[in-house]
C-alpha cells in the first residue's frame, strides 16, 4: 500500500519545527509501524535527506521508549498497544497519517519526534520506591499478601513510563503515571510504611514539573498501552488527601 505521512520535523530544542509531507511507498501490511518508518528513513538516507528521528528500543511494547502521536492518538488508535506493536494492517492504501511527538510543557521536544521525559524519572526519584536497602530484609514469604491486593498492585505496576497518558490528556497531566506508582506501593504491606510521605513528595514533584491538572477526561486510561485504570488516580487522590489531612 501507499501512504502519505505528515511528520513533525524539528532540528533541535530551540528550532521552530514544522510538519513535512512524505510518501511511503510499497508498504507491506505485515510491517509494524516503526518498520514502516524504517523503510521511509532508508529511502530518505538514499536521497541524502536526514532520516526522521524517533525514540524506540525493545520493539515489543515493554520498554516504553516509542512515543508517537499517530493521527491524534498516542501509539495509534488500536487499544492496549504501543506504537511498535501497531501493525500496518490497520491502515489502508491511500491513508494520510499524522505523526507528531508527545506535546507537553514537561516533555520538551529534543528532535523531530523525540521528547525529553526525564520529568518522569524525577518524580520516581522523589518518592516512587520502598526504602529497602540491599540485604537485611525478611524472607519473601514472611508477609503473605492477599491475592486481590497483589493482583491490583501488579495491574498498576504494569506501567511502562511511556508518557502516553500525558500526551493524551487534554491538560497534559501525569496523574495516571503517578497514581499507578503510588497505588502499587500503597497496596503492598512493604510500601505502606512510607505511603504518606511518598504521595506528598511525588505529587509535589509532579506539580513542580509543570504537568497539567486532572479534569477527569479519562483519555489517559484509553490511551494507556497497558490499559491502566483511572481508579488508581482516585486511589492516589485518597492517599494524598489522607496524608495531607494528617500533616
Amino acid at each position: 500500500m501507499n501512504l502519505t505521512l505528515k511528520v513533525w520535523r524539528q532540528k533541535h530544542k530551540e528550532d521552530q519545527g514544522l510538519m513535512v509531507t512524505y510518501e511511503a511507498k510499497d508498504i507491506n501490511s505485515h510491517m509494524s509501524f516503526l518498520e514502516m518508518l524504517d523503510v521511509v528513513n532508508e529511502d530518505l538516507i538514499k536521497k541524502g535527506e536526514e532520516p526522521i528521528a524517533f525514540d524506540h528500543d525493545c520493539r515489543e511494547g515493554i520498554c516504553g521508549a516509542c512515543s508517537l502521536m499517530i493521527n491524534g492518538v498516542p501509539h495509534g488508535s488500536e487499544k492496549g498497544i504501543t506504537a511498535c506493536q501497531l501493525h500496518m494492517r490497520h491502515f489502508k492504501d491511500g491513508d494520510v497519517i499524522y505523526i507528531e511527538p508527545w506535546r507537553a510543557r514537561a516533555f520538551p521536544v529534543i528532535k523531530d519526534l523525540i521528547v525529553d521525559r526525564s520529568a518522569f524519572d524525577r518524580i520516581i526519584q522523589s518518592g516512587g520506591f520502598v526504602s529497602a536497602t540491599t540485604g537485611g530484609v525478611p524472607d519473601a514469604n514472611a508477609i503473605p499478601i492477599a491475592k486481590p491486593d497483589s493482583d491490583s498492585a501488579m495491574d498498576a505496576a504494569a506501567c511502562i513510563g511511556c508518557g502516553a497518558c500525558v500526551a493524551a490528556c487534554p491538560n497534559a497531566s501525569a496523574m495516571l503515571f503517578v497514581g499507578a506508582k503510588v497505588s502499587q506501593l500503597a497496596l503492598l504491606p512493604q510500601g505502606k510504611i512510607e505511603r504518606e510521605q511518598r504521595v506528598l513528595n511525588m505529587v509535589r514533584t509532579m506539580d513542580e514539573e509543570n504537568f497539567g491538572n486532572c479534569t477527569n477526561h479519562f483519555e489517559c486510561e484509553a490511551a494507556c498501552p497497558k490499559e491502566i485504570s483511572v481508579q488508581y488516580i482516585a486511589q492516589m487522590n485518597r492517599e494524598y488527601l489522607r496524608a495531607a489531612a494528617k500533616q
Binding site: 502521536m69 491524534g72 499524522y98 507528531e100
Partner: peptide
C-alpha cells in the same frame, strides 16, 4: 501545560 497544540487532535 501544553504550549504547543497538536496539529491533528483526536480523542478517545
Amino acid at each position: 501545560a501544553r504550549p504547543t497544540p497538536y496539529q491533528f487532535q483526536d480523542t478517545i
